[in-house]
Computed example of a mutant assay.
Amino acid sequence: MSQPFDMELFLAGILTGSHASRRRHVRQAKIIQAEIAERWQRKTPWAWQRKHVTWFLEHRLDGRRDATRYYYLLTMRLIVRRLEKSWTLPPRGRV
């Protein structure tokens, strides 16, 4: 039986800032992970492609406030940096 993916451990090496900011990033990363896993059956960020990230930003955040989209974009940038990918994400969460 495999262990569930630990998003907090995955981001631990690159998270900086206040305790509240780190908690927010981990919480949002878990939401991103759950949404992509449900839609695309990709359980870990290592299996993600750019299209999965774009889908989340386009469709799951559609209709959200600009501030919410921006904070999710910041979290997504941390995930992409941790994956060491060269994906370019849209500015301000707009796709």
Rank of each mutant, 00 (worst) to 15 (best):
M1G: 10
S2C: 10
Q3W: 09
P4M: 05
D6H: 14
M7D: 02
E8M: 07
E8W: 03
E8K: 13
L9A: 14
L9F: 07
F10E: 08
F10S: 09
L11P: 06
A12I: 02
G13P: 00
G13H: 04
G13T: 06
G13E: 05
L15D: 03
L15P: 05
T16Y: 12
G17Q: 03
S18Q: 14
S18W: 09
H19D: 14
A20D: 13
A20W: 06
S21G: 04
S21A: 11
S21Q: 11
R22S: 08
R22T: 07
R22G: 09
R23K: 13
R23V: 12
R23E: 11
R23G: 03
R24L: 14
R24Y: 08
H25I: 03
H25P: 00
H25A: 10
H25Y: 15
V26S: 07
V26P: 05
V26E: 12
R27C: 02
R27N: 11
Q28I: 00
Q28V: 00
Q28H: 05
Q28D: 09
Q28G: 01
A29T: 02
A29M: 03
K30Q: 15
K30V: 00
I31M: 05
I32V: 15
I32M: 15
Q33K: 12
Q33L: 15
Q33D: 14
E35T: 11
E35W: 07
E35A: 15
E35G: 07
I36S: 03
A37F: 11
A37K: 06
E38Y: 04
R39W: 08
R39N: 08
Q41T: 11
K43E: 15
T44Y: 01
P45I: 08
W46M: 09
W48M: 13
Q49T: 12
Q49P: 06
Q49I: 04
R50Q: 14
K51T: 09
H52M: 06
H52Y: 09
V53G: 07
V53D: 04
V53T: 13
W55I: 06
W55P: 05
F56Q: 01
L57R: 06
E58L: 11
E58C: 11
H59N: 11
R60Q: 10
L61E: 13
D62R: 10
D62P: 00
G63Q: 03
R65H: 06
D66P: 13
D66T: 08
A67C: 05
A67M: 02
T68S: 11
T68D: 04
T68P: 08
R69E: 05
R69D: 06
Y70F: 07
Y70A: 07
Y71A: 08
Y72L: 03
Y72A: 04
L73Y: 01
L73N: 09
L73V: 00
L73D: 04
L74V: 11
T75S: 09
M76H: 03
R77F: 01
R77V: 02
L78S: 14
I79Y: 01
V80M: 03
V80Q: 03
R81I: 04
R82P: 00
L83M: 07
L83G: 02
L83E: 01
L83D: 01
E84C: 14
K85W: 11
K85C: 13
L89M: 13
L89F: 11
P90N: 06
P91D: 11
R94D: 15
R94S: 12
V95L: 15
V95R: 14
